[in-house]
């Protein structure tokens, strides 16, 4: 006999999960540690890498460009997360009511989230294009807010804000769906009881809706922070003037001097920041 039925089952279970575990282990877990190794080396793309200790890290944190990227990332993550969550909440509250044509509206609202980044960035670039774009037509020719047309999406002053609005536009469908599914699970009796107690719309929102969706909001904020901090395509493809940490890493490691050792160091510093933030957040906000 090959052992009990349970043991047989366990063996089969392990065998079935093995391919997935091996692939994830080799291509996700191992690279993370290999990255750590690389960050202590002067990496040559072909040939031997030499051990340099902490000098990659030293070079990174004494570089003003790194701190600029750090600040940009902080602003980007803060405002995109805030914007996506708040706008998602407004849309979810609106979509929680029944109205004719809701099915079509639901489908249309998901388009930004599913369309390939590469195809939507061009539409955004055209919208802000100094020569042909509608935006400059409005703010310069129609409203006269600026004396002359300029390239908003490339200007150092505004590019970050365009990237933030773009991210809110692209990701609000996700937040709104998450919030909506939680809203629909709220017990109607709570609202009826509140009405009997004389609560109006705004009070109902603050005393019933908000506490009920607190945790879903908390998880959305956490997920958006993780994803927005790691975002690359949404920024890099839209504008070349916003350097968040992932974009900065990409430029360091794959353009110019191809400094992969420093690139590894930056991506690990970013990862460390993210992890410590998550731990703090989970303890303080989600109170797990």
């Amino acid at each position: 006999m090959k052992g009990t039925l349970q043991q047989q089952q366990a063996r089969l279970g392990v065998r079935l999960i093995a391919p997935a575990v091996v692939i994830i282990g080799l291509l996700i877990v191992y690279p993370v540690f290999y990255n750590l190794f690389l960050s202590f080396h002067d990496v040559k793309l072909s040939g031997e890498s030499s051990f340099v200790g902490l000098s990659n890290y030293a070079a990174v944190i004494t570089d003003i460009e790194f701190w600029r990227a750090f600040l940009t990332t902080a602003l980007y993550v803060f405002f995109t997360t805030l914007g996506t969550t708040l706008f998602g909440l407004v849309v979810a509250l609106a979509m929680n009511r029944q109205f004719p044509g809701q099915g079509v509206v639901r489908s249309l609202l998901l388009l930004p989230y599913i369309a390939p980044v590469i195809s939507v960035v061009f539409a955004w670039q055209f919208f802000f294009d100094p020569v042909n774009g509608i935006f400059m037509h409005l703010v310069v020719d129609q409203w006269g807010l600026y004396p002359e047309r300029f390239n908003l999406i490339r200007s150092p002053r505004y590019a970050l804000w365009v990237a933030i609005v773009f991210s809110v536009w692209k990701n609000f469908p996700f937040t709104y769906l998450m919030i909506l599914s939680r809203l629909q699970a709220i017990d109607e009796n709570l609202y009826e009881a509140a009405e009997i107690d004389g609560c109006t719309g705004i009070k109902k929102f603050f005393y019933i809706t908000l506490p009920e969706i607190y945790f879903v909001l908390g998880s959305i904020v956490l997920m958006r922070i993780i994803w927005n901090m790691n975002k690359f395509e949404d920024i890099y493809l839209l504008t070349d003037n916003v350097k968040t940490l992932p974009v900065y890493t990409y430029f360091k490691a794959f353009t110019g001097a191809l400094d992969m050792g420093q690139g590894s160091a930056i991506s690990l510093i970013q990862f460390a920041i993210l992890i410590s933030f998550i731990i703090l957040y989970v303890k303080k906000v989600l109170k797990w």
Partner: peptide, 29 residues
Amino acid sequence: RMEYKGRRVIQRGVLFVYMFGGILLLIPL
């Protein structure tokens, strides 16, 4: 569907890898 040692670790680990952004794995890969 099946019971074996380490099942839960694997199940949670799958969620954990969400945190690794593309750029972190790009250089080593």
